[in-house]
Amino acid sequence: MKKKRTVHEVAFRLSYDLSTQIAPKLSKLDTKPAPLQLRAMRQIWNSGECTLLEISKTLKRDKSQITRLIDELCATDMVKREPNPKDKRSKLLKLTAKGYEFFETIEKIEAEFSAQLIEGIPQEDLDTFFAVSERLSYNLREKVKPYN
């Protein structure tokens, strides 16, 4: 009797396969931020600018950890802090020219990778995959209680 597959089993396998396939491509880059730094940079890239608190909430890490992470990115001239005109107590985080150029390269690598990954999959199936993935992600963030 064949064992029934579970969502988390498939998600773990997909995540592992994706990371092992794209890692060699990313390892050829001159700059090699840590995965959490990449996630923070992606949030800044996607939004154009954001605050430490926004990144902290998205990445579910404490503000002091994100502060250290952003300090490292600022030290490598990938991210910069600017005054927040809406809140004098906080700073806006933006990619520097170097950070922007780096993320353009990341986007090109990921676009080529994605094109190969989705080859032969109908758009309707991709739309369903994205909708289900978004719902799974939402449920994980908002509804699933951590196991203690």
Rank of each mutant, 00 (worst) to 15 (best):
K94F: 02
D71Y: 10
L140W: 09
R5M: 08
N139P: 01
K3T: 07
R61I: 01
F130Y: 14
L92R: 13
S114Q: 11
Q43H: 06
V10Q: 14
F12H: 14
I66P: 00
I55A: 03
P33E: 07
P33T: 05
S15I: 14
D125G: 07
E107F: 03
K32F: 07
Y16R: 15
P33W: 09
F102H: 07
Y147A: 15
E9D: 13
N46K: 15
K88F: 00
T20G: 02
L53I: 04
A23E: 07
S133L: 13
M41Q: 07
T20W: 01
M1L: 06
S90P: 00
N139Y: 14
F130A: 09
T51W: 09
T20P: 00
L14M: 14
E72C: 08
G99F: 09
I70P: 00
S114E: 09
K94N: 03
A75C: 06
K108L: 06
R89I: 00
L29Y: 02
T128W: 04
Y147T: 13
F129I: 13
R81N: 00
F113V: 03
S15Y: 15
K32G: 02
E134C: 05
P35F: 14
K86L: 02
L14A: 15
I118A: 10
E142V: 10
Q123Y: 12
E119D: 12
L92C: 04
V10P: 00
E124Y: 07
K145S: 14
L69Q: 03
V132Y: 12
H8W: 15
R135G: 01
P122M: 11
C74F: 04
S15R: 15
Y138K: 11
A131N: 10
L93Y: 07
E54H: 03
I44L: 02
N148D: 11
R61Q: 01
T6L: 15
D17V: 11
S114I: 12
R13E: 11
L69F: 05
E142G: 06
C74D: 02
E124G: 01
R68F: 09
T20Y: 02
L95D: 02
C74P: 00
Y16Q: 12
I70D: 01
K25E: 05
R5N: 06
I109K: 10
L52I: 05
S15H: 15
T58A: 12
K4M: 12
T128Y: 03
V132P: 01
K88Y: 00
I66M: 01
K91A: 07
S27D: 10
F129M: 13
I118Y: 14
F12K: 15
K80H: 03
L69C: 04
S114N: 11
P33S: 06
L18N: 13
K86A: 04
F103S: 01
L69D: 01
I109F: 09
L14P: 01
K80C: 02
